[in-house]
């Protein structure tokens, strides 16, 4: 279970719409409860570092941006819980490319942006054997 909260959800939607027809991406910060439930309380938008002509279907968060986000999380007393990105004119489902490049533990939030308007938003976690993504319940 991951809770995004209305403000975070709206912010991710807005980033997806702003980046359209390219993909947006960013880091989700928050905390993990004793029962393993995750609550995202802040996001850090990151410039999609893929080259021109590829950003419409690919994103990358460079390791330097990742380290900066980790430092910011520590400063705020939070953890890096995962990452979000948009799928312009594609479903909010992880692709094989997403799976091949994913890490365990993290939550991967995907927002579908259809013709410039954010629609479905989903959250996923990678199986320990990397064979598949599990869809996680995504609440307010």
């Amino acid at each position: 279970m991951i809770s995004l909260g209305r403000a975070v959800r709206l912010a991710i939607n807005a980033e997806g719409e702003r980046a359209y027809p390219d993909e947006c991406c960013g880091v989700m910060l928050g905390s993990i409860g004793e029962a393993g439930d995750r609550r995202v309380t802040a996001i850090i938008g990151v410039e999609n570092a893929r080259e021109d002509g590829e950003r419409y279907h690919r994103f990358v968060i460079e390791p330097e941006d990742f380290m900066r986000a980790e430092a910011e999380a520590r400063r705020m007393g939070l953890d890096v819980l995962g990452f979000y990105h948009s799928h312009p004119d594609h479903p909010a489902e992880p692709s094989d490319y997403d799976r091949e490049h994913a890490m365990p533990f993290y939550s991967y939030v995907i927002v579908s942006v259809e013709e410039g308007t954010a629609s479905e938003l989903t959250s996923w976690e990678l199986a320990a054997d990397r064979s598949e993504f599990f869809r996680m319940s995504c609440g307010e």
Partner: peptide, 10 residues
């Protein structure tokens, strides 16, 4: 340090 990457099925 991981770089985080992904994208659509395209």
């Amino acid at each position: 340090v991981p770089a985080i990457a992904g994208g659509t099925s395209e």
